[in-house]
Simulated scan of single mutants.
Amino acid sequence: MTHSVHTSASTARHTLPDDGLTGRAGRARREPMAVRALRDDTYLVDTEHDSYVVDLDGRSCTCPDYRLRGARCKHLRRVAMEVNEGLVPPPGKRDGVCAVCGESVFVPVDRGSYLCPAHSPERGEFVRDRETRSLLLVTRVTSERADERETEDGTVVADYGSNAEYGGHEPVIEAVYVGRAVTENGRMNVAGLRRYSFPASRLARVPAALRPNLAVVGV
């Protein structure tokens, strides 16, 4: 399976749309700057004159305006703006790509395989197995890769023949077969059912209009 890779926002200096703000907030938007997230949860802000390091959580900056005046400088404001507008990852996240479609996505700084919102089903959501057409219910979306996760019998998920067409780099999704659940009085109880592991793209999300109208317990 081939995946496209989308690059994150350009690291070249740029401005943000002018929204009429004045003072430091206005300069933060109108002046060309490049913001880059660093591995220690700080941000490098490159301006036309110099570069500074911003600690968003600590509300500090290495620029003279902050060091000498204690001001919430334009660099701090610019980083907050770019985080709020989804241009750079927030603290605790890094640039990544969805393991299924390759779309840019902010992911936890720890290693693992992740999905964008479009390809990450919710716990308790109905999905369909592309191979068997069976209906399943998601019990957990993990960050473990299919070529690393072992099942109960010691077989790696990606090594199953039925998973050959799906990416080994994809995160594993755990799910139960709906047909094996006990259904009574409009409630489906999946407690105690065996959890099976699948590469993410093997499970297709079921449109809301086609999902069973059942309350689910025991997920």
Rank of each mutant, 00 (worst) to 15 (best):
V97I: 15
L87E: 13
R78Y: 09
A191F: 02
R67Q: 15
E48S: 05
S4Q: 15
S60R: 04
H14C: 04
P199H: 12
R29S: 09
V157R: 11
R78N: 13
V172E: 04
L76N: 00
G23F: 03
P64H: 14
S60T: 15
T11W: 10
L87G: 09
V138N: 09
Y177D: 10
P89W: 06
H169C: 09
H6N: 12
R27H: 11
E125C: 00
P171C: 08
S113P: 01
A209E: 11
V83G: 07
G86T: 14
G23H: 12
V107F: 07
E85P: 00
A34R: 13
T2L: 06
P17D: 05
S120G: 13
V5P: 02
E125G: 00
R180V: 13
P17C: 03
P64G: 12
P121L: 00
S143L: 02
T11G: 09
R72I: 05
E165W: 05
S120H: 05
Y43G: 12
E184I: 05
V206I: 04
T139W: 03
A215Q: 07
N185H: 03
L38I: 02
A71S: 14
Y166I: 10
R24Y: 10
R36L: 07
R133M: 01
A80G: 03
V182H: 14
R202G: 03
V219S: 02
G70K: 12
V176W: 01
D41Q: 09
G23E: 11
R123A: 09
S8V: 10
T7F: 15
H6I: 15
A209K: 05
F198E: 03
V172S: 01
R77F: 00
P207K: 06
A12F: 14
Y52W: 15
G102C: 14
N185P: 05
G179S: 14
G96H: 05
C101F: 04
G70E: 07
R30M: 05
V45F: 07
H3R: 11
V35H: 06
G23R: 05
K93R: 08
R77P: 07
A200C: 08
D153T: 08
G167F: 03
A204L: 10
P117R: 08
P91Q: 07
D50A: 15
A146R: 11
F106W: 04
C61P: 06
G26W: 07
C63I: 06
V190A: 12
D18C: 11
G161T: 08
L56P: 04
N213W: 02
V157S: 12
V35M: 05
L87M: 13
E174V: 01
T2K: 11
G20D: 06
R77L: 15
V127E: 12
H6F: 13
C98V: 12
P121V: 02
A9L: 14
R94N: 01
D50W: 14
